[in-house]
Amino acid sequence: MVILLLVWEAIGASGLVDPLFISSPTGVARAAWQLSQRRDFWTDLQVSATEFMLGYGAALAVAIPLGLALGLSKRLQYLIGPFVDTLNAVPRVTLLPLIIIWCGIGIWSKVVVVFLGAVIPILINAQSGVKASEARFIRVARSFSASRFKIFSSIILPGVVPFIFTGAKYGAGRALLGVVVGELYASTAGLGHLIADAGNTFQTDVVFVGALLFMAAGLIVVALLDVFEQRFERWRPSPR
């Protein structure tokens, strides 16, 4: 890692390659500092964060209950399953031109793309989590005449949690992708807009700052989800 940074800096400083092409770590750091002084940078950040949170929040709110319901009820799965499978096969960003026709180029088209990107993996994971719950436990609980709700809350739900978190982590990546593509495609503000703008004006260092910010956002979201997961999983005896 350090070696890479040093080599990068050396190439940038030596002037062998035009700084237009690769910039350099110090150049990127300087650009980051300058950006942080500008007010519109913080608006961009805020816009992107809002899009991500609205879309991702809505995806969680829809996908978890729906996924659980689909896993529990076979009929419901027969009814909704074809749509989920179809949407799963569609790379959701290809729908972007349509979504822009429907919702315009403001933040709502991005919220919809983020939502569509994140909702499917979470839903599918929640559903397969219910399917994978230990059949023996359910049989035992039934023989002790546990109610359906009791079985759901004390056997199925705890078993599904790791699946949901896996889905949520995957979905977070998809959601970020939605933010970037949506903003590259058509937008008036946001980090992706900043990157696209900087790319068009050959400000390589600013593009790097934007890409690094997205990287940081991805790592932070996954780390947060890991922390939450550990909280939820603390009761589980470790397998070793």
Partner: peptide, 19 residues
């Protein structure tokens, strides 16, 4: 590198690639 790249939406590098 793999972990970091995997957390990034790789599309963010598109403007760089074009440069």
């Amino acid at each position: 590198f793999l972990a970091a790249l995997n957390a990034t939406p790789q599309v963010a590098f598109l403007p760089l690639i074009i440069i």
